[in-house]
Simulated scan of single mutants.
Amino acid sequence: MPIRIEDPFHDPTQNLNTDVNPFLSKMREGMENGSLPVLYGPRLKPLQGAWRSEFANTMAKPPEDLVLEVGSHKGEVLKKMAANHPDTGFVGVDITFKRVVTLAEKAQTLGLHNLRSLLCNGRALEQVFEESELSGALIFFPDPWAKKKRQQKNRLINHEFLLGLKKILKPGAFLWFKTDHKPYFDQVLPIAADLFAIEPAPQGIPSEIYTSRFERHFTEQGLPTYEICWRNSK
């Protein structure tokens, strides 16, 4: 069940019956009793500009770097990054209860104290993170909304979204994008060119190999995928 409300501080669970979706009660209980590293609704409000303090509660010290995944799905990529970089704080954002809970459960099982799973619309990120708060962001295989031409307006990545993302990325932060949809890739390139600098030889996390199940599926089918890494040049 995806959330469509863009207000990140609205509690989307308050009028829902927990019998309808088993992940709803898991998410609610996990946040309230602290058994899962999951956050949503009003609990997000005080965290803007305070994410390092939030991670300091479970890490040995506040992380110097914060990395965001927009559309974390079930967390396959993010859990690997968090395990490889235990001194970095990782935040996964998605819009379905199942995906948010699944990522949080994986983090809990693996003891990844540097990972948080958020129920949040990607268009609301400026309200959740402070200006220049993030060291990097990744967007892997977002929905291209390609079945019908009129659906293209639903694509997440547009000028408004990238402009907001640029504000919460610090100077020099990376933005890593992957997709299997060439028209979507071609649409994003000129928009991003006005806001970011292409990174010809990625360093740090974007230089490492992280493949999602989507990417492996396309590779197994002999289908091409497209990726690019930018740096925030402001």
Rank of each mutant, 00 (worst) to 15 (best):
P2D: 11
R4H: 15
I5D: 14
I5S: 12
E6Q: 14
F9D: 03
Q14P: 10
T18K: 08
D19L: 01
D19G: 01
D19I: 00
N21I: 07
N21M: 08
N21K: 08
P22C: 00
P22V: 00
F23R: 14
M27L: 13
E29D: 04
G30M: 03
N33G: 04
S35G: 11
P37A: 08
P37T: 07
P37Y: 04
G41A: 10
R43T: 08
R43H: 08
L44V: 05
L47F: 05
R52D: 00
E54I: 04
E54H: 14
F55L: 10
A56M: 10
T58H: 12
E64H: 06
D65A: 09
L66H: 03
L66Q: 07
L66S: 03
L68Y: 05
E69W: 06
V70L: 08
H73N: 15
H73F: 14
K74D: 12
K74E: 15
E76F: 09
V77F: 11
K80F: 00
M81E: 08
M81G: 06
A82G: 09
A83S: 11
H85G: 04
D87M: 07
G92W: 00
T96N: 15
T96M: 13
T96L: 12
T96R: 14
K98E: 15
R99C: 15
R99K: 15
V100M: 12
V100H: 03
V101G: 08
V101C: 10
T102D: 11
L103R: 03
Q108H: 10
T109G: 00
T109R: 04
L110Y: 00
L112A: 02
L112W: 00
N114Y: 03
N114R: 07
R116N: 11
R123H: 06
L125H: 06
F129G: 13
E130S: 14
E131G: 05
E133Q: 13
L134M: 06
S135P: 12
A137L: 12
I139L: 10
F141S: 08
F141N: 07
F141D: 06
D143S: 09
W145N: 09
A146Y: 15
Q151E: 11
H159K: 06
H159I: 00
E160S: 09
L165R: 03
K166S: 14
K167G: 11
K167C: 12
L169I: 09
K170E: 13
P171E: 07
G172C: 09
L175T: 05
F177Q: 01
D180W: 11
Y184A: 10
V188M: 07
V188K: 00
P190E: 03
A192M: 06
A192Y: 05
A193G: 06
L195V: 06
F196L: 13
F196V: 08
A197D: 14
A201M: 08
P202M: 03
P202E: 02
I209M: 09
I209G: 04
Y210Q: 09
T211C: 05
R213V: 13
R216F: 02
T219G: 11
T219M: 07
E220C: 00
E220D: 07
G222T: 03
G222R: 02
L223I: 03
P224Q: 07
I228A: 01
W230N: 08
W230H: 07
